[in-house]
């Protein structure tokens, strides 16, 4: 499923959840609510959270791919410096790219839906 489809699904779930919340408060009910009403709201929220988690997992996968690309760029830069094609100052750029790759990889950890 593409990112735009997921985004559309997220909005759809959010609309549905809003409707369920409206139904919960719209009936003039005051807390404590009936277990059936609450279950409907919580199941709607859980469905929304599933889509949120899937979106987060997709983003994390994309960041992981970008991490590998950056690692490749850093490695290529290091090889070119070693071969004398690039000046040693280019190593600073390699370090910066490496740091960016690590930072990006760190953001992909602990994302729901990407775990084992």
């Amino acid at each position: 499923m593409g990112a735009s489809q997921r985004r559309a699904e997220l909005l759809e779930r959010q609309r549905e959840l809003r409707a369920r919340h409206d139904a919960l408060g719209g009936l003039g009910a005051e807390p404590p609510y009936g277990p059936g009403q609450l279950d409907r709201v919580f199941s709607g929220t859980d469905e929304l959270m599933t889509v949120v988690d899937e979106l987060a997992a997709d983003a994390a996968r994309r960041r992981l791919v970008l991490t590998f690309v950056l690692l490749g760029v850093a490695a290529l830069g290091a090889v070119l410096v070693a071969a004398g094609v690039l000046s040693p100052w280019a190593l600073l750029g390699v370090v910066v790219v490496l740091a960016a790759a690590i930072a990006l990889w760190l953001t992909t950890r602990d994302v729901p839906g990407t775990g084992p």
Binding site: R7, L17, R18, T45
Partner: peptide, 25 residues
């Protein structure tokens, strides 16, 4: 959950509400 229903999807407040909902759930 009410925040999740009304906040802008993907926004900062939405993400904070999602984290809070996960913990409360």
């Amino acid at each position: 959950s009410r925040s999740l229903a009304v906040r802008k999807a993907g926004g900062w407040a939405f993400r904070r509400a999602a984290a809070a909902y996960r913990s409360e759930r």
